[in-house]
Nucleic acid binder design. Sequence first.
DNA 1: TGTCTGACGACCG
DNA 2: ACGGTCGCCAGAC
Length: 95
Amino acid sequence: MDEELHERMREIVASVPPGSVTTYGDVAAMAGAPSPRMVGKMLSEDGLDLPWHRVLRASGRPAEHIVHRQLELLRAEGVLADDGRINLRKYRWKP
DNA sequence: TGTCTGACGACCG
DNA sequence: ACGGTCGCCAGAC
């Protein structure tokens, strides 16, 4: 099992600064994950202590089950959604 | 082993 | 812009 990958994904998500967002795909690419799904999997089981709300789908929309909560947390950081969708060109984090 | 299931994404019409 | 489809890959059963 790859504990290393798990840690890299965690570190990347942890490093996304308040007021900006990233996507599952970006995190996967940066961490060298085989699929963006792995990022979602990691967050679902070990993401409570991470700024998981800063991770969106490539469309700029949050995953279905957490939409409300996520948009709420983002709004508190000044990341505003237009009809449920975040403008990635505006808020996307690029290290 | 074979199938199904996701906090996903690229492509296409 | 949207929805359908297909590829993806580790786990659960």
